[in-house]
């Protein structure tokens, strides 16, 4: 895994959270980010960021972190 690709994914997750994870409740914000990433990111991208998110936890904003944790759970359940 190149740092370049992962750093892009982290940046993208943060961007999504900043742009769409706004308004209403935190639960709703997280849900919107989960829905967006699940709908638009390829499976390998979701797997990569979820597999490495603990290492880069401090680089992720809170909504993005919560959304990725939920995506991680979904991936395990699938």
């Amino acid at each position: 895994m190149s740092e370049n690709e992962l750093s892009h994914l982290i940046k993208m997750a943060n961007q999504i959270a900043s742009n769409i994870g706004i308004g209403s409740t935190e639960e709703d914000c997280v849900k919107k980010v989960v829905t967006h990433i699940t709908a638009f990111w390829a499976l390998p991208m979701r797997q990569k960021i979820c597999a490495n998110m603990e290492e880069f936890a401090e680089d992720l904003n809170p909504i993005a972190t919560k959304a990725l944790l939920e995506i991680q759970t979904n991936l395990k359940a699938a």
Binding site: S2, N4, W41, M45
Partner: peptide, 16 residues
């Protein structure tokens, strides 16, 4: 599952 977008393809290509 959705696939890679161009930018994601290029990132994955650089990564190998």
């Amino acid at each position: 599952e959705p696939g890679y977008r161009i930018t994601n393809m290029l990132d994955a290509a650089v990564e190998g």
